[in-house]
Computed example of a mutant assay.
Amino acid sequence: MTTTIAVLVGSLRSGASNRALAEAAVALAPEGTELRIVDGLGDVPFYNEDVDQPGTVPATAQALRDAVGAADAVLVATPEHNGTIPAVLKNAIDWLSRPFGAGAVSGLPTAVIGGAHGQYGGVWAQDEARKALGIAGAAVIADATLSVANSSGRFAEAAPLEDPEITAALTSVLGALADAARTAA
């Protein structure tokens, strides 16, 4: 049986270093594991409980819920915007958290990774993402982390898959996440 991991990328920019990190994760999937990047986060409207009612959930929000709900685990790759997570990622978490206690992310093993321009690799954003995901009900794996400092510069020199330090750290995160998903099953 294949373990499926839904991958959420908090950057909408084409060529974003966090997208490259997510694509590297897909390529490094452990045996028996498939990673699927969930595209279209930018098309999901801002969360509004008025439209989060049976028969009125926007198709893009339902597609997000369906993709994550069908997965065994979640991997989030986030940049840092003004010291926190990007609005598009926070919005996705809001949609995935509802209905409270039974949202699509509820109980799913989840890891957060990412990179940013700064010297700390977006750790504030990653901490905020872990916090929001935990409150949303995800089973956050706190010690499965990867922070890439100066990610755009670093990945300009070598793609994530060409960087042995990145591939080793990413392989470790993916192994922990896949193991947690199999244990939770």
Rank of each mutant, 00 (worst) to 15 (best):
G40D: 14
W124C: 14
M1I: 05
D66E: 15
A73D: 06
L64W: 12
T167F: 03
A185M: 02
A144W: 07
V26E: 07
V148G: 08
Q62N: 08
A144G: 11
N91V: 02
I113V: 14
L146R: 02
E162A: 15
A144E: 09
A136M: 04
G15E: 13
G153C: 10
A16H: 08
A136E: 13
A159Y: 04
L133H: 03
L170H: 02
L161H: 03
T33K: 01
G83N: 04
A139H: 14
N91M: 08
P160Y: 03
Q119M: 13
W124N: 15
A178I: 01
T110Q: 06
L133Q: 12
A92H: 05
L96W: 07
L75S: 10
A132F: 14
I135M: 04
A24K: 03
N150D: 14
V57P: 00
A102H: 13
G137Y: 00
L75V: 11
D52Y: 01
T84A: 12
G107H: 05
R36V: 15
S17H: 04
V88K: 01
A71Q: 02
T167S: 04
A71Y: 03
L64A: 02
D143S: 10
M1G: 12
S11R: 01
G153V: 11
A129Q: 05
W124Y: 01
I166L: 02
L21Q: 09
E162S: 14
I85F: 13
G153K: 04
A25K: 00
G121V: 06
G137E: 11
A102N: 13
E31R: 05
T171G: 15
E80S: 06
Y120S: 07
R182M: 09
A25E: 03
D179K: 06
A144C: 07
A92P: 08
V44W: 08
T60H: 09
S106L: 08
P109E: 08
R13F: 10
G103Q: 10
A138H: 05
G121F: 06
G114T: 07
T110H: 03
V51C: 06
L89A: 00
E49Q: 14
P86Y: 08
T145E: 15
A25H: 11
A6C: 11
E31Y: 00
E23Q: 09
A71W: 03
Y120V: 11
R182T: 12
I37D: 02
P99D: 15
L28E: 10
A67F: 10
Q62T: 12
